[in-house]
Design a protein around this nucleic acid. Sequence first.
DNA 1: CTGAAAGCGCTTACAG
DNA 2: CTGAAAGCGCTTACAG
Lengths: 346, 346
Amino acid sequence: MATNTRHDKPTLATVARQAGVSAPTVSKVVNGRDDVAPETRARVLAALEQAGYQSPLQRRSAAEAATVVEVVIDFLDSAYTVEVLNGILRFAAGADVEILVSVTGQAPSSGISPEGRAQRMLDEGRAGMIVVTSAFSEAQLHAFRRRQIPVVVIDPLNPPPADVVSVGATNWAGGKAATEHLLALGHRHIAYIGGIERAECNQARLHGYMAALMAQGVPIEPHYIISGGRFRRDSGVAGFKALLKLEQLPTAIFAGSDSIALGVLSEAGRHGLRIPEDISLIGFDGTSQGQESVPALTSVAQPLEEMGRAALRSLLRQARGEVLDSHRVELATQVIVRGSTAPPAA
Amino acid sequence: MATNTRHDKPTLATVARQAGVSAPTVSKVVNGRDDVAPETRARVLAALEQAGYQSPLQRRSAAEAATVVEVVIDFLDSAYTVEVLNGILRFAAGADVEILVSVTGQAPSSGISPEGRAQRMLDEGRAGMIVVTSAFSEAQLHAFRRRQIPVVVIDPLNPPPADVVSVGATNWAGGKAATEHLLALGHRHIAYIGGIERAECNQARLHGYMAALMAQGVPIEPHYIISGGRFRRDSGVAGFKALLKLEQLPTAIFAGSDSIALGVLSEAGRHGLRIPEDISLIGFDGTSQGQESVPALTSVAQPLEEMGRAALRSLLRQARGEVLDSHRVELATQVIVRGSTAPPAA
DNA sequence: CTGAAAGCGCTTACAG
DNA sequence: CTGAAAGCGCTTACAG
């Protein structure tokens, strides 16, 4: 009588038997090769999962190696990214997790293919990957999903596939609150200078802005909506220059990020316009840079460090095989009133 | 004719042949079993050594495990650290090196002992460690040296042992150049607001400042030297407050870092003093933050990204066993004149 | 796309 | 203490 030897460590052969395929086929799936029919792959993955199969290397890694999480960033030059990374690093320090950081620059796929990258992560026994505001394609994420490597994205530029866990902030509510703050001060001519146009978070902020205007019956003036920039300082400079060309300047500006707002601040100064006496200015992000400018920037704060922490926590849960409540975590934004907003000049 | 197949990777079988024993015997030696005669064991060990045998697991690690370098940072909250890290990450992206970042916070040795940390690095096959402006003790560095793990320190707070490679900038020359710039504008009452007092780089900047004054016969006024702070914004705020208490304000201020200078800038603004009309201000570091303030900050630029790159390059050389020209690399600083310095008011 | 067959590198069990 | 033999787990090459 063949008893179920459930206490033995699972091998390729046992998994193969369970999935009703041969050992070589299981081997291919484990190694991420693509010459396996999707339906077969699914069956094998299920069997691997159920048996809790680990390759000899993984067994070894799991036993003695530290938990390593990879963090992928496009650039490390914005206060936003730095604060998110800080949240990740601080949480990691207390959780005995090591963080491998890589910057991709312009080309997210430079050097190594997504498949190669995913396979390497598997081989090295990495616990998972956090992608910060990068444009990771569906195909790239697919390579990870196929190998069951946990991935969490923070504020992705393109909306991630439904089954990828993502962390963000309440961008729509934040955009609405920022605009309501300006409206409450008495402003009726409010411009929006946005970041990357197609980015989810930018869209949400812009629509929050429009929702606030509409709710109060303030007409939306299309020439006050400046888009097509990035979330950086130079977009604020360019955006303000564009506003200067209009017949009438707005009395207040909502910038899609603190960096953009700082660009506006500097460019306004160059034209002899005072903030907030001549124009009110509110940013988004609540970074320390905005806090330290003169005047200090009123801003919609995102809990950036908290977002980094939440991403790592969620990733570690996935890595432990826990089932998550939700594939989307949105943390609350909050308007921080400092020195750059005031009632409009009489 | 049995040719020497030196290009094939050594296996248990080849080593066994070389040692004149069977494969199982070599297996026992490799696995540290004790049922092997001492004389046989010695012969096998010699053969293993000579063949450069690695177990499949070791081979796998060595072959495809990317080179991993650990970077240790105290805090990731200054523009200085961020730019150095950026230099490291960018160079790493092009050099197929992975970077493990850890922040130590207040306690550089929190959680794990230096010995434990070093041993773990060895076990995990890490190529080496870069320490950024942290206070690593001699004892800590010793743990690494003993295991022959390469270490490079960037601008250490305490001078590192002579045999540890360090990367920095020409701080003394930079301090002198900053002060000469102010002297050339006509200033004779120049204050220095320093960072961490005992830090090597702070000492060098201060002495550069004094050297420039002495060279031009301008008396050094001790109450114009503010020390005991850190390299952060609040030290600039506190330092400027201290200057305000003096009978006579200086006409120019040399700040030990851009962050300190930004604190001065904001505090001066709060007291209705204009930069550079009322007081000239020069910072140190040349960070992008200083570039973006209003007015833009005149500063002594350190090539921060370049320093990060140089540190990583030097580390990789050490890891490859190359002999370095020097244990100390100092990159040149340069005064960047922007909007915060001007001749003194008449 | 699949798997029977061959093979690789290592380990185990045990006869001597 | 040693090693021939058997075996394990995985991968490769390739026929269908």
